[in-house]
Structures are given as structure tokens and as C-alpha cells.
């Protein structure tokens, strides 16, 4: 993977604030190369989902972007008008959501929901969309696609639903997929199958993935690069192998130490040290003091 390739997603110095002026993202920069899986890891409330939403253009109304830019395959989203931006995002990105049940309309059959996007946004014919979906359902190893297409969401198990959503995400051949904790709701055995599927599809289709998770175990298995997020700030960024071999930031080290591992029970389960957190908070507070929106 050469460094002079144009990144598929490039976020530069992105900051966002809440109505009360509190910052939720602090000059976040990260990029995803074509065909790369970039993990975004951090504890609850760090702002992982917020970044994913910013990329997909679905931030809550109360959250305002105050500086920074986002480029999808070199096109600056900030320079486009709302409609062009929506079209660009619709055509080149897709989302695999965390909770497969709430992401599907309970009163519609799976088939219609899956082809909708292809027909509406990409303007495909119904027939072509149908074919494509069947092909993808096959790729995610759903044995009886016809039955699944005719089912309602509640008639499928959690693992099946997540497969359906993965198939739907890959169907439109997006350049970039944002996967927001796609396996957190699943048990470990199903999680492994799903991760394997995502990795395989990603390789076959050459898709770039921004993979949001709080599980360092998942990070180690699926990603090539990692950004570690704390309180809306990227505290460390590295190649995945590098990160686990030699974590640079104290917070990253603490996070790795806190991740349980059955192979080494006594080395694990150390809560992140208060002093590390205090240091980070102090760092952020000083940085916030000097910060003015828009001057970075």
C-alpha cells in the first residue's frame, strides 16, 4: 500500500461543538486509504459514533462542525451544496449499523428494504437490484436467499439480520463503509463469523472501511491501521501491528492492559489508571484554552 495514493476518506482537523459550546470532537484528523480497514477505538462517549455520523452527513442538529474539512476521494464535502453532498455520500459510502433490529423497518419485507437504496439512489432497475442483492446474500453465506428476502426482520436471528445489513452495505459497491460497532450486539461465535465476512468482502471488493469499536480484540483482528480516541481527541494513530507491539501513548497502553484475555488472566483487568486519565484531561483542558473555532 503506497502512501501517495489518494485517500478514500480524509478528515482534517475536524472540530464539532454542542450548543453549550462544549467540544465533542477536537481537531480530529484521520484518513482511510482505498482497500484499508481503519479502526477507530475509544471508550464510551469518546465521540466515535460522532465521527462516523459526520462522514455520513447525519450529525444530530445540535452538533455543529466549527472547523476542519472532510474529503471523500479528494472531493471536499464542505465545498459542495447540500444536494450534491448527499448524492456523493449516497453513491460512495454505506453504513453497517450497530443494532441490526432498529436499522430495519419492522413492517416491511427484507427484500424491498434491500433493493430500495439501489433503485432510489443509484437509479438501478428493480431487476438488476434484485439480482445484485441475491448475489450478495450468497456472498454473506445466507443459504436460502429467497426465504430471507420474503421475511420480516423479526423472523430472522440477530446474526442473520446483521448479515443482511452487511450485504446491503456492500451491494451498491461503495468506496467507503462506515461500520459502527457492527458486532457489539452479537455473541462471540456469531461475531467471529460476521468479522470474517466483512474482512472477506472488504478484500474482494477493495472497499475502505472505517471500523468503529471499543473492543481492542476486534481491532487487532480486522484492521490495518488504528486511531485511538479519547474525549473527542485522537491520542494515538498507528499501524495496528505497531500499536500492539509498541503502544506510544500512556492511554493506549492502559487500554490494552484493561482488555481481558483468557490466555493470560492475571495480566489483564487493570482499569485505566486515574493518573493517566487526569493527565489526559489536563492536556485537553489546556489545549481547549488556546483553541478558537476556525483558526486551526
Amino acid at each position: 500500500m503506497s502512501a501517495n495514493l489518494e485517500p478514500c476518506l480524509d478528515i482534517r482537523g475536524l472540530s464539532a461543538v454542542l450548543p453549550n459550546g462544549q467540544r465533542v470532537l477536537r481537531s480530529v484528523s484521520l484518513s482511510v486509504q482505498p482497500g484499508e480497514v481503519r479502526a477507530l477505538v475509544g471508550e464510551s462517549g469518546a465521540g466515535k459514533t460522532m465521527i462516523g455520523k459526520a462522514v455520513l452527513g447525519v450529525l444530530p442538529k445540535s452538533v455543529r462542525i466549527v472547523e476542519g474539512e472532510m474529503l471523500i476521494e479528494g472531493e471536499d464535502l464542505g465545498r459542495l451544496d447540500a444536494k450534491a453532498r448527499r448524492n456523493l455520500i449516497g453513491a460512495r459510502t454505506a453504513l453497517i449499523p450497530q443494532d441490526p433490529l432498529t436499522a430495519l423497518n419492522p413492517s416491511r419485507r427484507i427484500g424491498g428494504q434491500m433493493t430500495d437504496r439501489l433503485v432510489r439512489i443509484l437509479g438501478w432497475s428493480g431487476e438488476r437490484a434484485g439480482q445484485r442483492i441475491r448475489q450478495l446474500l450468497d456472498e454473506v453465506q445466507i443459504r436460502d436467499p429467497e426465504r430471507v428476502l420474503k421475511s420480516y426482520p423479526h423472523e430472522l436471528s440477530g446474526g442473520m439480520r446483521q448479515r443482511v445489513l452487511i450485504a446491503a452495505a456492500f451491494a451498491a459497491e461503495p468506496r467507503l463503509i462506515v461500520a459502527d460497532e457492527p458486532t457489539t450486539a452479537l455473541d462471540v461465535t456469531v461475531q467471529k463469523q460476521i468479522l470474517r465476512l466483512i474482512a472477506q468482502l472488504q478484500r474482494d471488493h477493495g472497499t475502505a472501511i472505517l471500523f468503529v469499536t471499543h473492543d481492542l480484540g476486534v481491532v487487532a483482528k480486522i484492521s490495518q491501521k488504528v486511531s485511538v480516541l479519547y474525549a473527542g481527541k485522537v491520542v494515538e494513530e498507528a499501524e495496528t501491528a505497531q500499536l500492539f507491539a509498541a503502544p506510544q501513548h500512556a492511554y493506549t497502553r492502559a487500554l490494552i492492559a484493561a482488555t481481558p484475555r483468557y490466555t493470560d488472566p492475571y495480566a489483564s483487568l487493570k482499569p485505566v489508571d486515574e493518573s493517566v486519565l487526569a493527565g489526559l484531561t489536563a492536556e485537553i483542558v489546556t489545549a481547549d484554552k488556546d483553541w478558537r473555532p476556525g483558526h486551526g
Binding site: V188, T189, Q191, K192, L195, D215, L216, G217, V218, V219, A220, K221, T240, A241, F244, A245, I256, T259, R261, Y262, T263
Partner: peptide, 10 residues
């Protein structure tokens, strides 16, 4: 079950 656990190791 054991093999399905993603350990934080490459």
C-alpha cells in the same frame, strides 16, 4: 467458543 474470542493480539 474459545477460538471465537478476539484477543488483543495480531
Amino acid at each position: 467458543l474459545l477460538a471465537a474470542i478476539p484477543l488483543p493480539e495480531i
